[in-house]
């Protein structure tokens, strides 16, 4: 067992990483909005893939913030585990609700 709050955590995400992630977040947001119907990146052919695309891009931003800003990449698996567990239960419930109402009610 170690003392908590022992060494300062300067080895985690420093200014350079923060800036790079910020850039990535900006680019992804621009792509996301660009794909919105009526905006530059949108085409009719893309429409069926639009929902998965939006979800994927959003998930990408989610992962970046969680990994680098929330330090999950640098921390003990304990924290990622706790969060992932909540996410797993949460996502299953949302998906089940939507499925049930889409097909069974």
């Amino acid at each position: 067992m170690s003392q908590p709050n022992g060494t300062p955590e300067v080895h985690k995400a420093g200014p350079k990483t923060c800036a790079l992630v910020a850039l990535a977040l900006t680019v992804i947001t621009l792509v996301e909005v660009g794909l919105f119907p009526g905006y530059p990146l949108y085409t009719e052919a893309l429409r069926p893939a639009l929902i998965p695309l939006f979800l994927l891009l959003g998930a990408g931003k989610f992962a970046l913030v969680a990994a680098f800003y929330m330090h999950l990449k640098y921390d003990k698996p304990l924290f990622g585990g706790i969060f992932a567990f909540g996410m797993a239960v949460g996502i299953s419930i949302v998906v089940s609700l939507i499925t049930l109402f889409l097909y069974y009610h």
Binding site: M1, N5, K76, I82, G86, M87
Partner: peptide, 25 residues
């Protein structure tokens, strides 16, 4: 010293966030 070596408050915050996922979900 804590069993995980991590501060109580940090563990608490992550548990809270996991719970809040269900709320927003």
């Amino acid at each position: 010293p804590t069993s995980t070596g991590e501060d109580h408050r940090k563990v608490l915050m992550w548990l809270f966030l996991a719970s809040d996922v269900l709320f927003f979900g």
